[in-house]
């Protein structure tokens, strides 16, 4: 019994809890219709990503899949990581219309601007005599 516990403890447990948490790199920009986010999440599969909205906060939590290959490690410039980042939404954001797509380790989020907040061009009628 004691041996089992010791063995279990001596093995480095690679769980989500003890992975380092980092802020992923992101680009954020706006167009007239929407705000866009492009967030780098290398190694994160679709089922490793969690996006949630609470009040005016859009929070992403993601965990990269641990696929450490066999053999001797000669170089390690990155490691399996837990990513976390929160973005604040303004009242212009249409929360119900948010779309997200994860492709090749890049998460693209589109937050549409509420229709009434979009810039409008007002048609000018020309008076004719």
């Amino acid at each position: 019994m004691t041996t089992t516990i010791e063995r279990r403890e001596s093995k480095p447990a690679r769980t989500t809890a003890n992975l380092p948490t980092v802020t992923p790199r992101a680009d954020v920009w706006e167009t007239a219709e929407a705000a866009h986010l492009a967030i780098e999440l290398p190694g994160v599969p679709k089922d490793g990503l969690d996006l949630s909205i609470e009040s005016d906060r859009l929070t992403l939590t993601a965990t990269s899949k641990d696929v450490t290959p066999d053999g001797r490690e000669l170089r390690a410039e990155w490691r399996p990581t837990r990513y976390q980042r929160t973005f604040l939404l303004t009242e212009d954001a249409d929360k119900s219309g948010i779309e997200a797509a994860l492709r090749h380790g890049l998460l693209a989020i589109r937050i549409p601007r509420r229709a009434e907040k979009r810039p409008r061009s007002i048609p000018v009628s020309v008076a004719t005599d």
Binding site: E40, P42, G43, P69, G71, L74, E77, H104
Partner: peptide
């Protein structure tokens, strides 16, 4: 591009993180 490199008796395995790169 950050990478990792592992070596076994018969091969090397390099893993390069290039999130968002067009395949």
């Amino acid at each position: 591009a950050p990478l990792t490199l592992h070596e076994t008796e018969s091969a090397f395995e390099a893993r390069i993180a290039v999130a968002g790169a067009d395949p």
